[in-house]
């Protein structure tokens, strides 16, 4: 059973802000997803090999060869805020 508290907890893990009046909407959606999973769990899968990826591909590698990185200007162009070549973010330690 998904409760409003569960929705709040999942939202906090994902750093999402959800208004109190929207909680029942998400609760219902998560509930229906879980019901679908329950439905899948009832299927007979004893003879189906487990799938970990939807593509039937494996062993895709890259050789250990250096290619140019971004220039500092390019790297910093994504920064909302910066300081002496670093990305600057709100303090995460008191």
């Amino acid at each position: 059973m998904i409760t409003n508290e569960t929705v709040k907890y999942i939202a906090s893990l994902s750093r999402l802000h959800i208004e109190e009046d929207r909680l029942p909407v998400f609760r219902a959606e998560l509930e229906s997803i879980l019901q679908y999973i329950d439905q899948l769990a009832k299927l007979e899968v004893a003879n189906v090999p487990p799938t970990s990826h939807v593509f039937q591909m494996e062993n895709v590698f890259r050789d250990d060869v250096v290619a140019p990185s971004l220039t500092p200007a390019e790297a910093m162009s994504f920064a909302i805020d910066q300081h002496s070549g670093h990305y600057k973010v709100p303090k995460v330690i008191e």
Partner: peptide, 29 residues
Amino acid sequence: ACRNDFGLPANTCVCPVCLGLPGTLPVLN
């Protein structure tokens, strides 16, 4: 394919993949 090195100036060994920019894909070394 960014250099794996220690002690270089900040953010000089970064690319769209290791910065996690949208649309990029990792490929195992």
